[in-house]
Amino acid sequence: MKSLPLLCLTSLMLMGCGANNTAPGTDVPGEKPSTLMRTLETGAQLIQSRPPVDAISTYLDGFHFYSGDKNGQMEAHHYVTILNEDVMQAVIYDGNTRDARLMGVEYIISERLFKTLPAEEKKLWHSHQYEVKSGNLIAPGLPAAADKTLMSRIVNTYGKTWHTWHTDRDKTLPLGIPALMMGFTGEGQLDPALLADRDRRLDVNTQDIKRERQDLEARPVVKGTDVWQHGEVIQLKRVNDAGEHGHGETRYFGTSEQSQQAKE
């Protein structure tokens, strides 16, 4: 899309809009940074380059829930890098302030790439059609025209999301096993109180955004994704196996299915 570079520039210029108003909900144990640490931090900022960080161009705000637990819902602040026409990647925080906690990551791919994935891989991904068309996924601060262009690129994409710090459960440290997250696919699934609180803080109206996006072309969701709708739960469990990435006998975090195979 020819307008994509301009869109990225616009997004970068406007990343500050709608930010600095959602602080993390939990405290991190530990002493405040010393003067020495602050001095080192300032020096590093002036001297070292950060190409992967500087490549982040877009801020998106939406909602996730745990695969297998639709009541385990939370707001997720995405900071997105556009790698190419078919792949984006996002770091996810529990707020949009300087001290926000890094909750996890999301990989976003086009419909074209998603169709090429094996059936078992597709089960790890969720569709974005409803999130976009409903107005639940927003780009705070973007002008309406830029928002429309961006969302036209996202509406038919698919995401794979892992949360590594479960701050919604009042955990002050990133404890436990990473969790596979899913996205909402229909009305009545997202807690209205979460949505209302988001709209208030970011000064947006989801229903107005929804009306603005009704003419976006949303193709039918590809079969094999959003498997939670069919009662299939995928989460990690500890098993004694090297796993697909292992080199010998190790402790491996596998899926529920792999755990059962190990027992057999």
Rank of each mutant, 00 (worst) to 15 (best):
N240T: 10
V239T: 13
T172Q: 14
Y93Q: 04
R251I: 11
I177C: 00
N20A: 12
V28E: 09
W165I: 02
E212R: 13
A90C: 08
L150R: 00
Q214E: 15
V87M: 05
F114Y: 15
H64K: 03
W165N: 00
D226G: 11
Q260V: 14
N21F: 14
C17T: 06
Y252D: 03
I234H: 13
D170L: 02
V91T: 11
I108Y: 01
M88F: 11
H64L: 02
K70D: 08
E31M: 02
K123P: 12
S34V: 01
E75P: 06
G186D: 15
K123R: 15
L6P: 06
T149Y: 10
D208R: 08
E249C: 02
G62P: 04
E187P: 13
D241W: 13
H247C: 00
E120Y: 14
K171W: 12
V222D: 12
N156D: 15
G159Q: 03
A218G: 09
T116I: 00
F63C: 00
T164P: 04
S110N: 06
K32H: 03
L60T: 04
D69C: 00
S127E: 11
G30M: 05
S127F: 10
E85M: 03
S259L: 13
L36E: 12
G188I: 05
S110Q: 10
G141F: 04
L202C: 04
G186W: 14
D170S: 04
L124W: 13
A145K: 07
K123W: 15
A90H: 03
D191A: 03
Q207A: 07
A218H: 06
K115D: 12
E264V: 10
M182I: 02
A242T: 00
N84M: 03
R112D: 12
H64E: 02
D208I: 08
P220N: 15
R238C: 09
M13V: 08
G246F: 01
G95H: 11
S110L: 05
T250P: 02
E212D: 15
M181V: 03
R50W: 13
V91Q: 10
M15A: 00
D27C: 07
Y79C: 04
I234T: 11
G224T: 12
R169G: 02
G248E: 00
L180C: 05
A262Q: 12
I92P: 03
V28P: 03
G176I: 08
G188R: 09
R153C: 04
S3W: 15
V53R: 13
N240P: 06
V155I: 06
V132Y: 09
A19L: 08
A76V: 04
D226F: 08
L137N: 04
T255L: 14
R50D: 14
A90V: 00
Q261F: 09
Q260Y: 13
G231K: 13
R98I: 09
S256T: 15
L124N: 07
R201I: 07
K123C: 13
M182Q: 12
A146M: 05
A193M: 11
M88C: 01
M13P: 02
R219K: 15
P29Q: 06
D147A: 06
D215I: 02
P140W: 04
A119L: 14
Q260W: 12
V155P: 07
G43A: 10
A146F: 06
P5G: 06
K263W: 14
G231H: 12
L190R: 03
E249F: 05
I56N: 05
D226A: 13
M37R: 13
D94K: 01
P140G: 07
